[in-house]
Design a protein around this nucleic acid. Structure first.
Length: 272
DNA sequence: CTTTACGCCTGACGGC
DNA sequence: TGCCGTCAGGCGTAAA
């Protein structure tokens, strides 16, 4: 399931092809995603040069002079780079063709992703405007978490998964980060000290950076832009390991629902 | 303002 | 073998 590392991995895979490319066609094969794909609007970009590509939170943004394509992988989406004429498969929703020879193809079985066109400055787009800082940037640190946690009675796990506080931390990396910080996921956000949040912010950065290095985590659907899986699954300490032994202390990893999400933690290592 | 629950969707998996 | 129930979950949205 694409979280920040998977989206970053995807961007890095397609970026070389987007550089200096001209959009030669946009084919909307199945417009049914989270919101309908605006095929007609997108077609106005045909003939435009790509002037940049970036990731913001879990969105991939492809900029042209006339507007930006805004892609989200939802929880089962992936983007592949293919040669023009490549066979079309099930759930291939949108092709962005480049220079008449390359396809940037969005596949999304569960259709939670999106492909939209933004005309306004991207930071003003309704899906982007209210997002919190990028976790790997210097705008994010323990002080941010500490300040935003004051007065909050939600579980700390829900705090770090809130995109208005910090972006890109989904269920997998939230569980992993809390394990490395030694913090119980259920702890009320306002009860944790400044020192604990400093540690938590640090490990979030480390976990995400390591996952990017491994090419992301592939559980079921995710593939990198070249079709290969990510290899971070092998490094997971708690996620999906209920009943198995903790790598640090041998206790049984426990699972528990917080909100609507299954949460994994070590009862011995995570006591704060 | 905060917190909570829901729903969108398909495929994998386990039980019978 | 096949059918069916359950689960996965990002995140906008509505309701409390």
């Amino acid at each position: 399931m694409p979280e920040l590392p998977e989206v970053e991995t995807t961007l890095r895979g397609i970026e070389p092809y987007l550089k200096n490319a001209t959009i030669s066609d946009i084919v909307v094969r199945n417009a049914s995603l989270r919101w309908p794909v605006p095929a007609k609007q997108l077609s106005t970009l045909v003939g435009q040069k790509v002037i940049g590509a970036e990731r913001r939170a879990k969105y991939i943004l492809i900029h042209t002079k006339l507007g930006s394509i805004l892609l989200h992988l939802g929880m089962s989406g992936s983007i592949r780079v293919l040669k023009f004429g490549a066979e079309v498969g099930k759930h291939d929703h949108v092709d962005i063709n480049l220079n008449g020879n390359t396809i940037i193809r969005l596949n999304d079985p569960r259709r939670f992703g999106c492909c939209l066109l933004a005309h306004e400055p991207i930071n003003e787009h309704r899906l982007i405007a209210k997002l919190g800082p990028e976790p790997l940037s210097s705008d994010f640190d323990g002080e941010v978490l500490f300040k935003r946690s004051r007065g909050r009675s939600i579980a700390v796990k829900n705090l770090i998964m809130d995109g208005n506080i910090v972006v890109g931390v989904g269920n997998i990396y939230a569980c992993e980060s809390l394990f490395l910080a030694g913090i119980r996921p259920t702890v009320t956000a306002k009860r944790l000290s400044r020192l604990r949040y400093k540690k938590l912010a640090e490990v979030i950065k480390v976990v995400l950076a390591n996952a990017i290095k491994a090419g992301g985590t592939t559980l079921n659907d995710f593939t990198q832009a070249d079709g290969k899986p990510g290899y971070f699954k092998q490094e997971l300490q708690v996620y999906g390991r209920a009943g198995q032994a903790c790598n640090d202390c041998d206790s049984k990893i426990k699972s528990q629902f917080i909100g609507q999400r299954n949460t994994f933690y070590c009862p011995t290592c995570q006591t704060f």
